[in-house]
């Protein structure tokens, strides 16, 4: 099944998650990670998942990517039933998962090698992406020679190389300093609108979720359920200064309130 690279961007995913549950067979019996998740995501939409540690955010991402099977329910992406790895997606895992025998550039290029895309063209794009995350000088460095934040930035570039119509990100900016984080949030938003990407974005940060998203999905733990979905009605393109706007602060207050009522104080407060 050799899918031509060119038509990819024309396919616009529309995600529907209906009645999805996930139970792991743990060592001490079954663990229900997710219970009856219903969510549908529009093409080009930016959706953030916000929730305390262990509530099943990463699990939901793994189900969406088709890397783990659902226990119950059904997931469709772009009208295609997900029952195996969805290679169209770009994934930033919670751990950077860099290959230690490859330089930063080669780590990004593995994406092109596996997909057998045009190598010189991909290398050109990989260098552009490295430039975007300010790692131009480190393209030949091995992962061991990079800091945690630099490693995560390389893994973001790897996820973007093949211009995925759907981007799945699991706390991609968690390891970054505040300033790099701000910059990358802006870069990410620009990339999304340029490429018409749909983004499923997991975060621990309320501010980050509001700043980036069209909708914020709040999850509650044990078993993971969707607690609330909040539309973020802020104009685009987003500007960093918007974080001081009254409306933005209202959203922050609202979300904090939800977490307080859930008895969760794990966020950055």
């Amino acid at each position: 099944m050799a899918a031509p690279e060119t038509i990819r961007s024309a396919s616009r995913p529309h995600i529907s998650i209906s009645g999805v549950s996930k139970t792991f067979q743990g060592r001490q019996g079954p663990v229900q990670a997710l219970q009856d998740i219903n969510l549908s995501i529009e093409k080009g939409e930016f959706v953030s998942i916000l929730g305390p540690s262990g509530c099943g955010k990463s699990t939901l991402l793994m189900l969406l990517s088709g890397l783990l099977p659902v226990t119950k329910g059904r997931i469709d992406v772009d009208k295609k039933h997900i029952d195996g790895p969805n290679a169209d997606a770009g994934i930033v895992f919670q751990q950077d998962v860099l290959l230690e025998w490859r330089s930063a550039l080669q780590n990004i290029m593995i994406q092109a090698e596996i997909r057998k895309s045009n190598i010189p063209e991909a290398r050109e794009r990989a260098r552009q992406l490295l430039k975007m995350v300010s790692l131009t000088d480190f393209e030949n460095s091995y992962p061991k020679e990079l800091s945690g934040g630099m490693r995560q930035r390389v893994s973001i570039c790897r996820a973007l190389l093949h211009r995925p119509p759907l981007l799945l990100m699991d706390e991609p900016f968690g390891a970054l300093d505040a300033m790099t984080r701000d910059q990358l949030q802006i870069d990410l938003l620009r990339l999304c609108s340029d490429n018409d990407m749909t983004v499923f974005f997991i975060t621990h940060s309320i501010t980050e979720a509001i700043f980036l998203s069209d909708r914020v999905v709040v999850m509650s733990p044990r078993p993971g359920r969707i607690e609330r979905i909040i539309d973020i009605d802020l104009p685009r393109p987003r500007r960093l200064s918007m974080r001081e706007d009254a409306k933005f602060i209202d959203y922050t207050r609202e979300l904090t309130g939800i977490f307080k009522s859930l008895g969760v104080f794990r966020e950055e407060y």
Partner: peptide, 8 residues
């Protein structure tokens, strides 16, 4: 997982 996500 990474390998499979690329369709390796």
């Amino acid at each position: 997982y990474l390998a499979r996500s690329m369709g390796a």
